[in-house]
Amino acid sequence: MSAPQTQRPLPPLPAKARGIVLPGDTSCPGCPIPIAFKVLASVFGDKMILVIPACCTSVILGTYPGQSLKAGVIHVPFASAAAVASGVAAALKMRGIEDVQVIAWAGDGGTADIGMATLSGAAERNEDIIYIMYDNEAYMNTGIQRSSATPQGAWTTTTPVLGKLEPKKDVAKIMIAHGVPYVATASIAYPHDFYQKLMKAKSIKGFRFIHLHAPCPPGWRFDPMYTVRIARLAVETGLWILYEYHNGKLMLSPPSQPYLDPSKRKPIEEYLKLQGRFRKITPELIKAIQQHVESNWEWIKKMMS
């Protein structure tokens, strides 16, 4: 049995990431970021330049003279990821370098709040970059402050009593409104789906945006062993919908397809109850989240038809 197995080529995910995403970074146990990096490396190998504004990733990659990623990394100020990435892509083009992908890799704070202006500018100019927003739904490395991508009902250190009262800002929708060639949502619980989306993005020219859902154990207050389980529950409850938007058409991704039918979705309480940040949530807010989920699915149905 073992002989034919040894001859079969190893799957690129995870084999191609070996030696590129290196162990010993300073991320918290259970951190979603190294999981995502292994998927990036499986697609691009070391042929990528990440442009990273202030976020957890600026910290966890390590300090001079070392870093835990065998790829180009440019650390940039908070608001500038999309602008710097645009410049780097233009410079590579001038030099005739075509096999290196420029990727802006930013958190929700650096995207939905502080980076929105340069992001919108780069999208409007249709710059030839991939922008990935890894969304851990708050400013984590500065101490769990609310961002506009924090979901309704979530405790943060700046929404300490009632939790956040406003719904989550939907950045993927904002990007679709820019009319860019490719927009997708992804989740660290579905690395193969994320892989497919990056492969698709790689084959397209122009501005490509991926919104990656990334649960964070210390910030969301859960046991680090459940990072993947919680990310998966977000999809199974219908809260986080995986789709691709390309050529003016929206396609629901395979992991989310069953949940078009509301009766297949798990109750959202299953997702909320595993996380300490929703410990004090009120029934009214749960209802509000439920309504938000319904209206998101209505929007999906409209976009699909």
Binding site: L22, P23, G24, D25, T26, I60, L61, G62, T63, Y64, P65, G66, Q67, S68, L69, K70, A71, V73
Partner: peptide, 10 residues
């Protein structure tokens, strides 16, 4: 001052 990839940066 360029960083180099290393195992065990932390």
């Amino acid at each position: 001052p360029l960083t180099k990839p290393v195992e065990g940066v932390g």
